[in-house]
Design a protein around this nucleic acid. Structure first.
Length: 458
RNA sequence: GUGGUUGUAGCUCAGCUGGUUAGAGCGCUGGAUUGUGGUUCCAGAGGUCGCCGGUUCGAACCCGGUCUUCCACCCCA
């Protein structure tokens, strides 16, 4: 054998059984997206670097895969930049394209480019791979799929309500019950920062607060302190660390806490609206939970923030997230278009379903019937039979060569085929075929003219 | 980007303080069984010990580098 081949770090091959399971999830998400009136679009796997760079923060820029220019790309670089060997300065000159980092920014670009063709509010879904130059970890890959649904051109809070229902619908259908939909609002976070007098440190404050249930109150205080948030502000924020109880109770505490912040009060109002609406409409299996520590990608969210985590006991981080962004298209020159959207983390959902054994048995079945091959003449007759089964929508196949039966049976076994058809010399002579049910070993004989009788038993 | 971890047969893994020809189970191939798989029995094939270099009389084992795996941090789905 030549040198052993390999694939890049953080990428994966998918075997037939894995693809079947992934498609099961994707198909189900698609169905729900369409049920809610979303339409599919697709965008290129790579964009112009300008489209992506600077949209995800400094950290994000570092994680974007850049594509080296074609041709004599170094010719354009001036001597000074080249001599300095400064990657950050050199990169924009030799890479004009970059791999898609998420689906939201390309969507914003799409909306701006096609604004005159779109009917607003525009509801779109998109299921495509994205790439991040991250270091792989549990549930983190360098190539992975996102399944996004967004609506732009409506600032109605009813959209948020629908997204909560959409999450609930998808996860219920997947059999993943008791997922927790965490809910927060960027306006509340801003209001808190305003109230405690730390507006300028909003991001540092929320990033630290986000870690509350992970590292504990003491460590969060330490981090806030080390980020330069005044001690008195941290003290003022104390009620937030102890936020407990039902959604209604927490909301009441927040309302009192934020009473002097216009922004914060607006956020509380929005949250209240969502809770009331969902209380009226009901959810099938998910739980809605207010979580002021929920921060997520703060770069563009302006209103509601969602995050879905797997049922308790499954350690997988978030399996979906989203929120309201009032001015996403603004960065591409289209003002005042409000958007809200959510994302499903396909790869993580897969891992969770696998861990909980929630994939249906039937999706592993790639073939219903295998016809064994007894020789040229018998094989031809079997192919005729397989053809007629295929026309009736049955997954049927013929073993292509007439090797010994034990080998053909073994193949059927390994492929998990439930039925095997034997059509040999004897059967051909009296125009019949034998169906063997692999699980029980029972064999039944049918006339060749009577295929329908067999099909009826499937 | 920081710190740690992993790599031996197709797969899962043994392999002693460095010492002849690197092992097991599963899988694979053939046979017992020329028209019957999933059970059993017998036999067989299959390995540049991730890669490059160093130390040594001698390296799967020690050292350096590199790639990869997994994990934590950062950040995030």
């Amino acid at each position: 054998m030549a040198q052993k081949p390999s694939i890049p770090k953080g990428t994966r091959d998918f075997a037939p059984a894995e693809v079947a399971k992934r498609n099961y999830i994707i198909d189900l998400i698609k169905k729900q997206f369409q049920c809610f009136g979303f339409q599919p679009i697709e965008t290129p796997s790579f964009e112009n670097s300008d489209t992506l760079m600077g949209k995800y923060g400094e950290e994000g820029d570092r994680l974007i895969f850049k594509i080296l220019n074609s041709g004599d790309f170094l010719a354009k670089v001036d001597q000074g930049t080249y001599a300095k060997k400064d990657a950050v300065a050199l990169a924009p000159k030799i890479t004009e394209k970059a791999l898609r980092y998420d689906l939201t920014v390309p969507f914003a670009r799409y909306v701006v480019m096609h604004q005159n063709e779109l009917d607003f509010p525009f509801k779109r879904y998109q299921i495509q791979p994205v790439w991040r130059a991250d270091r792989p970890q549990k549930g983190r890959f360098r190539e992975f799929y996102q399944c996004d649904a967004d609506v732009v051109g409506s600032d109605s809070l009813l959209q948020e309500v629908e997204f909560i229902q959409l999450y609930d619908g998808v996860f219920t259908e997947l059999g993943l019950t008791n997922t927790i939909i965490k809910l927060n609002n960027r306006k509340i976070l801003a209001g808190i920062a305003e109230t405690i007098g730390a507006q300028e440190r909003l991001v540092d404050f929320t990033v630290a607060l986000d870690k509350l249930d992970k590292i504990g109150e003491e460590k969060v205080r330490e981090e806030m302190h080390s980020k330069g948030i005044p001690q008195e502000a941290i003290v003022k924020a104390a009620p937030l660390f102890a936020l407990k109880g039902s959604n209604a109770e927490q909301l009441q505490v927040l309302a009192d806490f934020l009473t002097h912040s216009v922004m914060g009060t607006a956020g509380v109002g929005e949250l209240q609206f969502l809770l009331d609406a969902i209380a009226k409409l009901g959810l099938q299996s998910a739980q809605l939970r207010i979580d002021v520590t929920l921060a997520r990608g703060l770069n563009y969210y302006t209103g509601a923030i969602f995050e879905v985590t797997a049922p308790e006991g499954v350690d997988m981080g978030s399996i979906g997230g989203g929120g309201r962004y009032d001015d996403l298209t603004g960065i591409f020159g289209l003002k005042d278009v409000s958007g809200v959207g959510i994302s499903f983390g396909l790869d993580r959902i897969y891992l969770v379903l696998e861990e909980l054994g929630l994939f249906p048995e039937a999706i592993a079945r790639s073939l219903d019937v295998l016809c064994l091959n007894f020789g040229p003449k018998e094989g031809m007759a079997a192919l005729t039979l397989a053809t007629s089964l295929r026309k009736q929508g049955i997954k049927a196949d013929l073993y292509p060569s007439d090797t010994k039966l034990s080998k053909q049976f073994k193949y059927a076994n390994n492929r998990n085929v439930p039925y095997v058809i034997l059509l040999g010399e004897e059967e051909l002579k009296n125009n019949s075929f034998i169906v063997k049910h692999m699980a029980t070993g029972n064999q039944v004989s049918y006339a060749l003219t009577d295929v329908a009788n067999f099909v009826a038993t499937l």
